Amino acid sequence: MSIKAIIVDDERHSRETLEKLLDSFCKDISVIKSVDNIKDAIQAINLVKPDVIFLDIELQEGTGFDILTEIDSINFEVIFISAFEHYALKAIKYSSLDYLLKPIDSDELIIAVEKLKRKDNIVYKKQLEALLHNLQHHTKLSKICLATSGGIEFVAIDNIIYCKADGSYTTFYLKNKSTIIVSKHLKVYENLLVDHQFMRIHNRFLINLREVEGYMKSDGGYILMSNQDHLSISNNKKDTFLSVMNQLSF
């Protein structure tokens, strides 16, 4: 079964290269239209009704996200493309959506297309909605997408008290007293949340600094969180933690 695709990229060379890669390595993909601007992209989407769009994030007259916000009903999937590792891609990571970096590697393209075939459309739409929601709040991403054994959960960052590492798993401790376990290393979430007043205080703990109730010197030193949990802090993190807490304004 052929998968109908549209390519949106303002660089002719990039469009032609992607078409050749798809033709060579992804025989299920049929490129129906290839366009270089927002207006033509919206027209093509409404006309073709694609299954997937290969969407460049940075366009001369705006961004690929401008296209998505103009579409009334997103009944297709998106594989984002960019030459830049910056804010927009961080937003995509929050929403657990995949993207390809230029120059596109054929192996990465194959993996992305295979994931496309296996995606749950309902879950994917929720992920895309979360992404667009985050992008409307440029100064602060508000939700993070967590893939669990039972499905996908979207958690408000402000509701996270702390995260705890357990080997290759991470447990999220939330304000409603629930926990969520995901099969990703704590380092992944440290990178995502560092700009949101989260700090790694120990090889096992990443904490929301806004949920700290106190620092206790007894028992070698520990941090009291808002849920009354006592978390160990590494000796080499104590001075940095205290300095950061003194500088923060909540």
Rank of each mutant, 00 (worst) to 15 (best):
I160M: 09
L135P: 00
V123P: 06
I92D: 00
N134T: 06
L209R: 08
V48H: 01
I3D: 00
E70C: 13
V194R: 07
F241I: 11
G62W: 02
K177Y: 06
V48S: 08
Y94Q: 06
Q228T: 13
S30F: 13
K117I: 10
E108W: 03
G150C: 05
F172A: 08
H196A: 02
E190T: 07
I111R: 09
I110L: 05
I3W: 05
I57T: 10
S73W: 03
S183K: 12
K238D: 12
T139K: 11
E190H: 12
R12A: 13
I71W: 01
L174H: 01
R12Q: 15
R204K: 05
N208R: 10
I207W: 04
I42A: 07
N46S: 13
S249K: 13
S142A: 10
L89H: 11
I160C: 12
N203D: 08
Q43D: 12
C145F: 08
L131I: 06
R204Y: 02
G151N: 09
H13V: 15
L21T: 02
D66M: 09
S168I: 14
C163Q: 04
K102I: 07
L97P: 08
I157G: 11
H13T: 13
A44L: 09
G214N: 14
L97C: 06
E153H: 15
D219N: 12
G62F: 00
A112S: 11
I144P: 02
N203I: 07
L132R: 09
L101H: 02
E85I: 13
E58I: 13
L109W: 00
I71T: 05
F65W: 06
V182F: 07
S96D: 05
A44Y: 06
G220W: 05
K20F: 02
S95N: 10
Y124P: 04
K175V: 15
I81W: 00
F65Y: 05
S218E: 15
L55R: 08
A41Y: 00
G221Q: 08
I157M: 06
L100F: 06
D120E: 07
A83N: 11
I53L: 14
H202S: 04
Q60P: 03
L101Y: 06
C163S: 09
I223A: 02
G64T: 08
Y189T: 07
D158G: 10
K117V: 05
Y169N: 13
L100G: 04
D10G: 12
R200P: 04
L186N: 08
I67Q: 01
H230F: 05
T240I: 14
D72I: 06
I53H: 00
G150F: 05
N37A: 09
V52K: 00
I161N: 00
K115F: 05
H13W: 00
E129D: 14
S24L: 09
E11K: 13
K164L: 06
K119I: 10
K93N: 03
A5K: 01
S226W: 00
K184T: 08
